[in-house]
Design a protein around this nucleic acid. Structure first.
Lengths: 199, 199
DNA sequence: AGTGCCATGTAATTCGTTACATGATTTC
DNA sequence: GAAATCATGTAACGAATTACATGGCACT
């Protein structure tokens, strides 16, 4: 009974594990110190997801004995896990059900994949933002400003934020270019570098 | 078995009804044409919430017979509903569980309350944003830029968006000022105006 | 003695989604 | 004849939260 695509929650956990071996506790900590604001499952939810990932053989668990600390289980990504993660990151969902954050969430993990994939994802995000911007701007024209001042104001905030994100996307584009160059340079100098994608 | 505070979903539905009598269908439509992007319950969820609101006597239902269209039920806010809504809008939750959107959601409904309440809510939002900005900026310093380029980039987006929201808050402040003045002018000229708060 | 960190989980409950079901009327 | 709009709901399921439960070590 394998699902075709794991849930976003599962993929995010998987993504964090892809950066290196982690325990459930580590994951909970890292979540709130990094992507917690984009997407924040509770500690207990993480512990529920981990066995599911093992079951789908996307990660493998390993017991670690400790003296002065409680024993713990650490999880490491498997080849199947890498494949699942890669296909998630490479697929561009034009209208994600989980909202616009899904683009950003995927971009967060783009250190794991070739710069090419990051660029593709970014393009999808840009298209999404542009569509939204058009829609919101036309909504703004329809609203009457006299009766519902705050409706308009809130909409204006949304529009301003989209514009900011679009500007940011331009920055990222440049950054990806620099990344590609530095990776290419390293590739024909020394063979293994920490900057190369790891999955 | 009365809850002390209705859920956010209930309050948002209640808020929309406060603008005027609505059917379940109307609500679903209005949601996706206005605040859907901030907070989007499905149509079927709306139909589940409406009886709950009746039960808590925050709204009253009325049957409407129609010839060429199916009959429908329309909902109107009650005095108890107004009280619940007002207390929600006037209360500033410094760290909302539903995330930052809760501030914006409340501001969306601020045409219903005195300008004073809007300003108080806005101040809370500003404090929230400033706290976040400080936190994110310190996170940015901690990240190493070499290994995880995209972690930094995503964080930079969040920071840029917060700055945009803060600028927007300045705008809203000015707009509220204008609103107060125009309301005051109307108050000592004609007695009833559509621009006065309705709850 | 008390707080906080490490570490993992279960149980109860709520919230919400998707899919299904129905059916008339209007518009292309 | 097909599609869209109006109109309301149920049923099955999944996802996620909060609260509960345990327990040792380190630091003040």
């Amino acid at each position: 009974m394998e699902r075709l695509q794991p849930s976003t929650t599962e993929l995010v956990i998987l993504g964090l594990i892809a950066f290196g071996e982690r325990s459930g506790y580590d994951l909970a900590q890292q979540v709130e110190r990094s992507i917690g604001y984009l997407w924040g499952p509770s500690r207990s939810q993480i512990y529920k997801v981990l066995p599911r990932l093992v079951e789908q053989s996307l990660v493998r668990a390993r017991e670690v004995q400790q003296r002065d600390r409680p024993d713990k289980a650490v999880y490491r990504i498997t080849p199947a896990g890498r494949r699942a993660l890669r296909s998630w990151l490479e697929e561009v969902d034009e209208e994600p059900v989980g909202g616009p954050n899904e683009f950003v969430l995927k971009l967060f993990f783009c250190d794991l994949v070739p710069a090419r994939s990051a660029r593709t994802q970014l393009e999808g995000y840009r298209r999404f933002l542009t569509r939204r911007l058009r829609r919101f701007e036309s909504m703004l024209r329809e609203f009457d400003e006299v009766e519902h001042v705050f409706h308009q104001l809130v909409l204006r905030r949304a529009i301003a934020r989209i514009r900011t994100s679009l500007d940011w996307a331009d920055d990222v584009d440049g950054e990806i270019g620099r990344l590609e160059m530095s990776r290419a340079r390293r590739a024909h100098q020394g063979p293994r570098s920490s900057r190369q994608p790891v999955i």
